[in-house]
Simulated assay, not measured.
Amino acid sequence: MSDNDSQSTPQNAEKDPQDWTTGDEPVTGPQLSYLQTLAREAGREVPEGLTKAKASELIDELQQKTGRGA
């Protein structure tokens, strides 16, 4: 076993969207597309002017509502 094994950081560690350095940037195309799908399934509207961070939070919320969340 190498020293790296005992000091490794989880590859899938999640960071709060509010702490993202790019969180204030506009929502990405893939985020918006997925949000539109989730919102349609949940009977919701996608707000305009979303940031990456807000879109991520809304995705998490809608995944829970639609049962698509992990």
Rank of each mutant, 00 (worst) to 15 (best):
P10L: 15
E45Q: 13
P47I: 02
G49I: 05
P30S: 07
D60H: 14
Q7L: 14
L35K: 02
D19M: 10
L32W: 06
S56R: 00
Q18K: 09
D24H: 15
E61P: 02
A39K: 05
E61V: 08
T22I: 03
T51L: 09
E25N: 13
R44S: 15
V27D: 07
G29P: 00
T22S: 09
Q7P: 00
A70P: 07
P17G: 11
A70Y: 11
K52Q: 15
R44C: 15
Q11S: 15
G49H: 06
D60E: 12
N12A: 12
T51K: 11
D16N: 14
L50K: 07
S8P: 01
R40I: 05
A13E: 10
P47Q: 03
Y34Q: 05
E14G: 09
R68I: 01
G43N: 11
E48H: 06
K15M: 13
E61N: 04
A42F: 05
D24W: 11
T37H: 03
W20C: 04
E14K: 12
T21V: 12
T22D: 15
A39I: 06
S33R: 09
M1D: 01
T28H: 05
D5M: 12
T51Y: 14
E14F: 11
K54W: 06
A13Y: 12
K54T: 14
E57W: 10
T66P: 00
D19N: 11
V27I: 11
S2A: 07
E41M: 09
E61T: 12
L35H: 05
N12L: 08
P17L: 08
N12G: 03
A55K: 02
P26H: 14
T51W: 13
E61L: 13
T21G: 02
A53E: 09
T22M: 01
P17A: 12
E45R: 10
G49A: 06
E61S: 10
Q36M: 02
S6V: 09
Q64Y: 07
D3L: 03
A70E: 04
S6R: 04
A39N: 12
G69C: 05
E57S: 07
G67S: 02
P10W: 15
T37Y: 06
Q64C: 03
P26E: 07
K15F: 15
D60Y: 14
E57P: 03
K65D: 10
D16S: 12
E45P: 03
T9L: 14
E14R: 13
S8H: 12
S56E: 10
R44W: 14
A55H: 10
K15L: 15
K54H: 09
P30V: 04
Q11I: 14
S8N: 09
L32H: 01
A70S: 00
Q63H: 04
S2K: 02
L32F: 00
E14Y: 12
